[in-house]
């Protein structure tokens, strides 16, 4: 799974599931460690997604069917 393709909502749901499984405590130690690692990886992925997102405020301009995208600045009054 590439970083960009992360479905954040699903990742969060999965994080919750993993937490519940770990807390239930009926996993073997091996399974627990695996789940822990899986959760940590997922959490890092989510965090990276948040950190690496770029601030962009753009405006689409459609001139004669040709689409351009340029930076949008709020006009100051």
């Amino acid at each position: 799974m590439k970083e960009k393709e992360i479905n954040f909502e699903e990742a969060m749901k999965q994080l919750e599931n993993i937490a519940n499984e770990l807390e239930k405590g009926d996993l073997s130690l091996d399974e627990s460690v695996n789940k822990f690692e899986e959760g940590m990886k997922l959490s890092k992925k989510c965090n990276d997604f948040l950190e690496k997102a770029e601030k962009k405020i753009t405006m689409l301009i459609n001139s004669d069917g040709e689409i351009k995208e340029e930076e949008f600045k709020i006009e100051e009054n």
């Binding site: 948040l50 997102a53 601030k55 962009k56 405020i57």
Partner: peptide, 14 residues
């Protein structure tokens, strides 16, 4: 939007 998430991408279609 930017207050809630500084890295948000907003695409305006006027």
């Amino acid at each position: 939007s930017t207050r809630r998430n500084p890295n948000v991408h907003i695409r305006l279609y006027p």
